[in-house]
């Protein structure tokens, strides 16, 4: 099922859902991350991890703290679980611009939890997910 998802589906459907589940924990990061996906089903999306609620906005109108330019092939390999960061960067398929330290914080947010239970107890979720 995940293999049939395009980057567009991922940014416009999957991520907004995940961010809703994560609730205040996601908004607490206080950063904007812009993804520019080049290629088939690509596009530009800004992940707003700021209060009052985290979400995904199409385009790059919001000032991004970090911009990630990536090919749609590499984005697909991320979704398929076959991504190799070193190879992708060496091949010039990923470019970064901005505060690179945000990568680790956002990476941690997406790797941790994200369940309906957390939506029901947003304060507990925020406390468990956000590290200083």
């Amino acid at each position: 099922m995940s293999q049939s998802l395009s980057p567009r589906d991922y940014f416009e459907v999957v991520l907004p859902t995940i961010l809703r589940w994560k609730g205040p924990a996601a908004a607490a990061l206080g950063v904007n991350v812009c993804f520019v996906v080049n290629g088939k089903n690509g596009g530009t999306w800004t992940i707003r991890l700021r209060p009052p609620a985290a979400g995904v906005v199409a385009g790059s109108e919001w000032k991004a703290d970090l911009s990630i330019k990536i090919t749609s092939e590499e984005m697909s390999s991320i979704l398929a679980g076959t991504f190799d960061a070193r190879r992708a960067i060496a091949a010039g398929n990923i470019e970064l611009r901005g505060d690179v330290s945000i990568l680790r914080r956002v990476g941690f947010l997406f790797q941790s939890g994200g369940s309906e239970a957390e939506v029901r107890t947003p304060v507990a979720a925020a406390a468990s997910e956000v590290k200083p």
Binding site: L5, I89, F110
Partner: peptide, 24 residues
Amino acid sequence: RELAQKLGIAMSEIADVAEETGMG
């Protein structure tokens, strides 16, 4: 959730390489 985790893992891996190389 696994799809979100995959993006998170990828971002952490990119961070590792970026820190090593000064990328970005």
